[in-house]
């Protein structure tokens, strides 16, 4: 096989995985939304639908050893970093087999085995954690890169400026990835963010980039480059990704005309949907046929439905677990007196 063909094959696998992962996120969210609407899910949850190219484009540039920190809108990051549907749905439903034994729920899913240090219900709350993970990489020589996902609203938190300053001073391998979906809760970004976000990071001497967050290939190519440069000690970096959330702020935010028009939503879905645009590109490039893509979609939807069914029937944690994991068991302090 010629070198050119094997490269093409390799790319084809990557493209397919990216397509699948985006569809998996969409399918996960459609089911989560359904669980909420049918009152089968405790609490609320924030849908990632529409932003899939961000999580997938970035996480596909990472290894399982690389770390991410996530947000209240975190299902997409979790799936993209390698999590399974079953454990995720179990967590959303508060079941024992959930990633966090039902103790975290939607807003705290962590999947340490795949490098997901956790979603966070404090806006901007994980910016320090991501930067600390990068400090570990540098001090321990593990060479892992950390990506800190956060929303446009989180750029208003002072913590970001404190940790960016230290990350730049100490040349840490961390990428701050701001998913600018145009809104924080029910407020437009223009109303809460003065000036330019990239200029803020640049003020710390951090190289900054803006990219179309609906274009998975553009996101992935940029992420690959920056991850490589982080490994060479050239971090930190900042990326602003322009994107859009399809649902309300959370699943219960249904009547939202007062802050966002239906026309605007329809326009993004029609023109800038990351999955259908990428699917069409795969067809245009003759990498896949439309039928093949439909088959993939179907298979994933049925996987998701099976996982939901499993999770609905799974058992709740035993009540004796309520005061487990408050403190970690310390193996041994050593000799004490």
């Amino acid at each position: 096989m010629s070198a050119a063909r094997s490269k093409k094959k390799h790319n084809t696998d990557d493209y397919l995985r990216m397509y699948r992962q985006m569809v998996r996120i969409r399918a996960f969210e459609d089911n989560a939304n359904q669980l909420y609407l049918s009152a089968k899910m405790p609490g609320l949850t924030h849908m990632y639908s529409g932003q899939e190219a961000v999580a997938v484009g970035i996480c596909e540039a990472l290894t399982p050893e690389d770390k991410i920190t996530s947000t209240h809108r975190g299902h997409g990051h979790c799936v993209a970093k390698g999590a399974n549907f079953r454990e995720m749905f179990c967590e959303l439903l508060g079941k024992e087999e959930g990633y966090c034994r039902g103790k975290g729920g939607s807003m705290h899913i962590a999947d340490q085995a795949n490098g997901n240090l956790g979603a966070n219900a404090i806006v901007g709350g994980s910016m320090g954690i991501a930067t600390g993970s990068a400090l570990s990489a540098k001090r321990l020589g593990t060479n892992h890169v950390t990506v800190c996902f956060f929303g446009d609203g989180a750029t208003a938190q002072g913590l970001w400026y404190e940790v960016m300053n230290m990350a730049a001073l100490w040349k840490l391998p961390v990428i701050y990835a701001c998913e600018n979906n145009g809104y924080s809760e029910y407020t437009k970004t223009d109303e809460i963010a003065a000036g330019s976000l990239t200029a803020r990071a640049e003020a710390f001497g951090i190289e900054s980039f803006r990219v179309d967050g609906q274009d998975v290939l553009a996101v992935n190519q940029l992420a690959q480059r920056l991850v490589e440069r982080c490994r060479k000690g050239e971090g930190p970096f900042f990326i602003e990704l322009e994107t859009y959330r399809y649902h309300g702020h959370h699943v219960g935010d249904i009547n939202r005309d007062y802050y966002r028009s239906r026309d605007e939503e329809a326009e993004w879905k029609k023109v800038r949907d990351p999955i259908s645009n990428f699917g069409n590109w795969l067809i245009d490039q003759k990498i896949m046929t439309a039928d093949e893509l439909v088959a993939i979609d179907k298979e994933i939807v049925s996987d998701a439905e099976a996982a939901v069914k499993y999770a609905l029937e799974a058992k709740y944690p035993d009540v004796r677990e309520v005061d487990m994991h408050v403190y970690a068991e310390t193996a041994a302090w050593g000799e004490t007196q």
């Binding site: 320090g128 954690i129 991501a130 600390g132 993970s133 990068a134 570990s136 404190e162 940790v163 230290m166």
Partner: peptide, 12 residues
């Protein structure tokens, strides 16, 4: 900032 960095460093 450095408290947060310590938390992330401790987790990793």
């Amino acid at each position: 900032g450095f408290m947060g960095i310590a938390v992330g460093a401790a987790m990793t």
